[in-house]
Design a binder for these strands. Structure first.
Lengths: 335, 335
DNA sequence: CTGTTAGCGCTTTCAA
DNA sequence: TTGAAAGCGCTAACAG
């Protein structure tokens, strides 16, 4: 069933049918109705490939999701999908493995699919800097900063990592904690982790609190298991910590698991803080004290950024979203 | 940049370039190399739309995900994506809102995109029975049963709900529980919930344990918040329960949150069981006693089912995957 | 082994 | 307001 068949059945030309299907002007009301009836009769839908081939495909926005395992990205994706319902664009979702080079992938797919823009959900511009620099369509990276990539097509929007880390540090110190362990990502490979660590450290230093990186910082994967393993190492290296600052809720939950297994009570014996503010963080016991990423804002404004680049050729932009502190029950006052 | 440009630069016909690009036989080694060089030089990639238009798009398998919020579907999607790397098909992922009619959507998109098969991740065949019956390509529903839909194109693979529920019921009873609350889905609209409830009930009855549906069953959404709210209602209606059987880990976690807030200790005061065996279930405190869905098996075999329908025109099939019981720490022995 | 060519289904001029 | 016709970039059948 093609547009031709519909045209034949109506006894009109394909042009007319096309116009009706696309809601374009230049068709008499009577004719429009007649054609629409046949279309409805067969539940006819245009062949997207032919349509896009002809139109040079300028309606698709590619959404590259880096690793489905992150709960944060999921809620982000959900928000974005919702926004697309009102948009005159089609969202094409592609899920990449965690270890793939998302920028390179984006470059390749760009030639093949000619999207009008690309949304990166998650992604590590610091790792694939060179490939990110090659992007030739408006792009936006949501949930991480892309300052360091020198590409006028690439915008980014992310939480104020530094603010969140500093605030948490101040909060812990205010509550009397001075022996604090930190669980985060690999500092060499993750700019994000570096930012969060540095801000945290700076606050400690400003309070004259020493920090022995070798012992008190443990690198881990951003996962439950990563957090659990890291906590073990941390406890072994620094048995007398009173608090653990983690760079992700999943890590915090993993760490709390380890603490429970070793007989520690959170927050009575050891306090724990998270980062992200996932839904689960307010349902686990104890509720996590954490920094919430406003996923709806991230999604909304990130998309807006991209659309502005597309429609108004606005220059790229790097936005920082303010963090929100959630005081749960996982930090105790040890003063 | 099109295949024509490449051909021109090489001084050959488009046919030759096409053959090289698609790795087809019938090109001399020398020519192949020469063409490949130009292709590499420009990082040329075929226009998918043109290719698919011509080929009548028989390479795409559509993956319809019903609601991104379910952690279970996420891990399922991840497994499936991984499998596709070895497959000669392209996966097209579409995420639908929770309240959309996935079967109707599938029918529509079928006309437009002509996928060779469709994977439903999540979905409620009992609700959209009529639309599921209309599907005209091989389809597989993963994570729910589609027995009730009379459609020879539709296969399904899901966990043995009944077995899982019965086993949990026996386990609770063995541990001395007789006043058990149940938190599940709306029985009127969810066949899945009905199955799980019925099996549970049957075991209770076989042990001569009474169950007052009005008071002891609370319907809720499959979410943290749903579980939390339902638990409140349950506690109000039946203050003397010693255990709560939930139909999802997220519900169980939500329920445990409520229990903690009301001062109950799990499992000392009240036991709780989950369903799904999500990763988080083994990181929360206490670890959940639950029924694990083997997502890798579901994904693997579900996809195999679909491929068999596609390549060998195998008849549809409804498979039940055995459940796995995970004994966590959320059930106490009250004998 | 290689080049030429006829469409795939659609949109969009251009003429009528 | 309508229909006819020219491609969009590609594959595959056919001819050389």
């Amino acid at each position: 069933m093609t547009i031709k068949d519909i045209a034949k059945e109506c006894g009109v030309g394909v042009g007319t049918v096309s116009r009706v299907l696309n809601g374009q002007a230049g068709v008499s009301e009577a004719m429009r109705e007649k054609v629409q009836q046949v279309i409805d009769k067969y539940d006819f839908v245009l062949n997207q490939n032919a349509k896009l081939l002809k139109e040079q495909e300028r309606h698709t926005i590619l959404i590259l999701v880096k690793g489905m395992s992150s709960i944060l990205l999921n809620s982000l994706l959900e928000c974005i999908q919702k926004r697309f319902e009102e948009l005159p664009y089609t969202a094409d979702v592609v899920v990449l493995d965690e270890y793939e080079n998302e920028a390179q992938y984006a470059c390749r797919i760009f030639y093949a699919r000619k999207p009008i823009g690309i949304v990166f959900l998650g992604g590590t511009p610091d790792v694939y800097k060179d490939d990110f620099a090659k992007l030739k369509v408006p792009c936006v990276l949501i949930s991480n900063q892309a300052h360091s990539v020198n590409n006028s097509n690439l915008s980014s929007i992310s939480i104020d990592d530094c603010g969140g880390s500093s605030f948490t540090a101040e909060f812990l110190i205010k509550n009397g904690h001075r022996q604090i362990g930190v669980i985060g990502g690999e500092l060499e490979s993750s700019e994000l982790s570096r930012r969060r660590y540095q801000s945290f450290l700076t606050v400690l230093e400003s309070h004259g609190i020493p920090f022995d990186f070798e012992k008190q910082y443990v690198a881990a994967k951003y996962s439950f298991e990563g957090g659990a393993q890291a906590a073990k190492k941390l406890l072994d290296q620094v048995p007398n910590i009173s608090a653990i600052f983690t760079m992700a809720d999943v890590m915090a939950i993993g760490a709390m698991r380890t603490l429970a297994d070793r007989g520690y009570s959170v927050p009575r014996d050891i306090s724990v803080t998270g980062f992200d503010g996932l839904e689960i963080s307010q349902y686990c016991t104890p509720r996590l004290t954490t920094i919430r990423q406003k996923t709806d804002l991230l999604a909304e404004q990130g998309l807006a950024l991209l659309l502005k680049s597309i429609t108004e050729k606005a220059p790229n932009n790097h936005i920082l979203i303010p963090f929100e502190f959630i005081e749960g029950e996982s930090v105790s006052n040890v003063r």
